[in-house]
Amino acid sequence: MMLDVQNLVHRFPGGVNAVNDVSFSIAAGETLGLVGESGSGKSTIGLLVTRLLAPTGGTILFEGEDITRLPPAALRKLRARLQIVFQDPWGSLNPRMTIGRLLEEPLALHTTLDSAARIAEARRLADRVRLPAASLSRYPHELSGGQLQRVSIARAIANRPKLVVLDEPTSSLDLSVRAGILQLLDELQRETGIAMLFISHDLETVRLVSHRVIVLYLGRIVEQAPAATLFDNPAHPYTQVLLSAHLPPDPAMRLRRHEVTGEIPSPINLPPGCFFAGRCPVALPACTAAPPPAIALEAGHSAACLRIADGTNIIDPVEERA
């Protein structure tokens, strides 16, 4: 396993329980999608896995090595192999450094290449992510959002990492630019076999890029499955609600809407049972007692819902208009 996360817990100062007992793993060459709405803890998991945050509890194994409590010096060395790309392309790059220097930086930090070799390598990287060579001498504010995100990706892959966390890498980009970035990521994975943790709230994009998908709700995994299975046969009521709320960009597709009412619990004061029970149309009394265990439906597909045991987990859609 490239990455193996066990019982990850994170609590922010102030008592916000952002991540609550999350376990998952990523194999080499695999893309794992992490979906959820705001407050689901998906970005926090990205920061924990790359150790930009120190977890409150649990263990993180990266290439078999326990990195949960790594000292700063060892952590810095690790960063050559474990990388992250952030959502905001305009804010992710030092505004006072040229693109060339930004691309050279990871090489300067982790290799023994001399200046000339670094410049040559920066050129090659720029070319690989299809940045015009002229952009190397430019400053970040002179580039478009799509180009900036290519710079961030080039920086991330500069030292040939084993795993890249992509935290909403295309969410702030326009549709036509987004497609180009997704294509680039796809190519890079095919060429280098890099593993990816793709974090997004955009269901269509996650479906397109992921091999497997995990659905999060309030920092807890409610369901995980191979991408096609999850989107075609969602088992957890929350997954069903989430998918039904999505608006496919095609007027010919009919919407099957699930109505949910009730308030989302506060992450400071979480209920003892299933976090979704308060809004769930098929909740049982037992759902509020203890967290439901993950129940396996088939190979690689599991969901944390008590209703799965007797097959009553599928909720009826409120019939949608024509």
């Binding site: 326009d174 549709l175 036509s176 180009g180 997704l182 269509e204 397109l208 960009p249 095609d250």
Partner: peptide, 19 residues
């Protein structure tokens, strides 16, 4: 091009768009 850049269409047709 706009419609072809939606992830659903990309899944069907492959990457066809150049932004």
């Amino acid at each position: 091009a706009l419609i072809a850049s939606t992830p659903g269409r990309i899944a069907q047709l492959g990457y066809t768009v150049t932004g």
